Simulated scan of single mutants.
Amino acid sequence: MHAPRSPRLPRRPRTAALLTALATCAALTACAGQTPSPAAPPAASAPASPAPGTSATQQPASADASAPAQVAIPSLGIRSSLMRLGLNADGTVEVPPAEQGMTAGWYTGGAVPGRPGAAVLIGHNDTRFGRAVFHDLKDIRKGAQVLVQDDSGASLSFTVTGKETVSKKAFPTERVYGATKGSTLRLVTCDGAFDAEGHPVDNLIVYAERS
């Protein structure tokens, strides 16, 4: 069950809080390793200043927007419905529950796929239950197609422009969540070796643009 939503905040501080929370959570708990991930630190522990690249394009999706319902990566044989991910009570972003590791999620505080801005999809690599939806994401190649279908059944095509593996201690907030003129997509999962507690130390980020 998802945790209660965080208290409503004024618009400008809320934007900063959303990006800070998202960066913190994606860098620390986008995946569970061989054991359950520890609770993410509260957003208050991160810098209070707005993340670089913050703009109106990163505001939460409007109620009338056609939300993404499915994602598919044909070259990897990946297909998943998309759950909606919001904020936990402590201000950190939700991630898919470990028991639903084969289902990816769309962070509703970012852009709607197909609209200007960065739309962020988060999925596990592995969980304590085994292989998860983005397990093979590391094998994706530049030029690969990512398809996102919305609630109305319309399908949008994105082309992969690159990928990178980064330390969770140096998550590239601006590159992932910063404002973009066009419609872009970011896929985030875990990668790399495991620490002493069995959690991956890196994040894998895939960047794609509207085809």
Rank of each mutant, 00 (worst) to 15 (best):
A30I: 11
D151C: 10
R84A: 10
T92A: 04
E174P: 14
T54K: 06
P60N: 08
V188D: 12
C190M: 11
T15M: 14
I73D: 03
P41L: 13
Q145K: 12
E164P: 06
A89P: 00
D150C: 04
A43P: 06
G162Q: 04
P172C: 09
P36G: 05
L22I: 08
L121P: 02
R186F: 14
G123E: 02
G143K: 07
Q58P: 01
A61N: 13
A17P: 01
F194K: 05
D136L: 06
P52Y: 11
A144N: 01
P42T: 02
R84P: 04
E197L: 03
S167H: 07
A51W: 10
I78Y: 05
A179Y: 13
I140T: 08
M83P: 12
A56E: 09
L156V: 09
T92P: 00
P200M: 00
G114Q: 01
L9N: 10
A40V: 05
G198M: 09
A46V: 04
A43G: 07
L18W: 07
R141I: 03
A56H: 07
C31Y: 01
I140E: 02
K181E: 15
C25E: 08
F129A: 07
T35P: 01
L22V: 13
H124K: 02
A23W: 05
S49Y: 05
A111W: 01
L82H: 12
L204S: 00
I140K: 07
P97G: 06
A56Q: 10
H2Y: 13
D139G: 02
N88D: 02
K169W: 12
S81K: 12
H135W: 14
R79I: 12
A119S: 06
S157P: 01
S167A: 11
W106C: 06
L137I: 09
A170L: 05
V201E: 05
M83W: 12
G182K: 15
G162Y: 03
G192L: 02
H2S: 14
F134G: 12
S81D: 14
R84L: 11
T103Q: 14
E164M: 10
P113H: 10
L137T: 11
P7Y: 08
F158Y: 14
L19K: 09
S81R: 14
A21P: 00
H2N: 12
P10W: 08
R14P: 07
T159S: 09
P50R: 02
A44N: 00
S6E: 11
K181I: 15
L19A: 14
K168F: 07
A23L: 05
F129P: 05
